[in-house]
Design a protein around this nucleic acid. Structure first.
Lengths: 152, 152
DNA sequence: GCTGAAAATTAAGCACG
DNA sequence: CGTGCTTAATTTTCAGC
């Protein structure tokens, strides 16, 4: 799907705040409300926009503690990999899982209440999974930037 | 701010899809439309919900290549740290920056078109910043899970 | 693909238990 | 805190260019 300059501006606006009205966007882009409406529909149907979500402040719900956890598997058979990925994806503390290159096989972003909760997560949930070789945790001291918006 | 069970269900619904109508939510939670409306307003004013955003599929806009870049600073004076954080936050390829514990000082999540674009980013943008000591890149082979929703 | 106006749906405000 | 009613605003559809 081809995106023109207007589409890109539109995506920037919606990535920043998806509750803008079509009228407001129409004003900013100097288009009619219907034109904005149709462009948005096109971006949704073309799956450029995958979804609309509300973002919750972690500190307001006791999930301020963020850690990156790198994981090595013991054996990389297809079955093991699939099973591990499925199991780890089901853990609610784990927001992101990436299969990566390098010394470790996976990087996880984990968000919990505090260090104690993290310890509990590691002991009772993560290392309870099958096929985990070794892990290495890196703790976030402070989040400097954290956006979901891709600049186009 | 105290959240009851209904608030938590409401947050789960809005984190999954923020375009649900109050009517639809009211049906799911067995409340009136106005009650849903007021609860959402309260969550917004109490800054439990920080914002509403559209999520864009990276592969549809040529940003499929994701890397984690770990960075060590040469000198940790307050001025250096502040300046580095400000500069790195301005790079559009960098979606996330975390000051972290451990061997490296920062973890960046970088999204670009491909490996070539990453090389270009490293050579011309990142290592052009002041005070960077060493870096280490880890490349995403495949994203296994990637959600913005915090389970409450 | 855009415009402008009409129709349908939703959000916001108000009186009240 | 909740409900139900009323009004305002927005989204969605449609004919026409």
């Amino acid at each position: 799907m081809k995106l023109d300059v207007i589409d890109k501006k539109l995506l920037a606006l919606l990535q920043e705040n998806s509750r803008r009205t079509n009228k407001e966007i129409a004003g900013k882009l100097e288009l009619s409300v219907t034109a904005v409406y149709e462009r948005i529909r096109k971006l949704e149907r073309g799956e450029v926009i995958s979804k609309y979500v509300a973002l919750v402040k972690p500190e307001r719900i006791e999930r301020s503690f963020t850690a990156f956890c790198q994981i090595k598997l013991v054996q990389h058979t297809k079955g093991n990999v699939t099973r591990f990925e499925k199991q780890v994806s089901q853990l609610s503390e784990v927001l992101e899982v990436f299969h990566v290159s390098g010394e470790y096989d996976y990087i996880l972003k984990v968000m919990v209440k505090d260090m104690e909760a993290y310890r509990d997560f590691m002991l009772n949930k993560l290392t309870a999974l099958d096929h985990i070789g070794s892990t290495q945790s890196t703790f976030v001291i402070s989040p400097v930037k954290n956006t979901t918006a891709l600049n186009i």
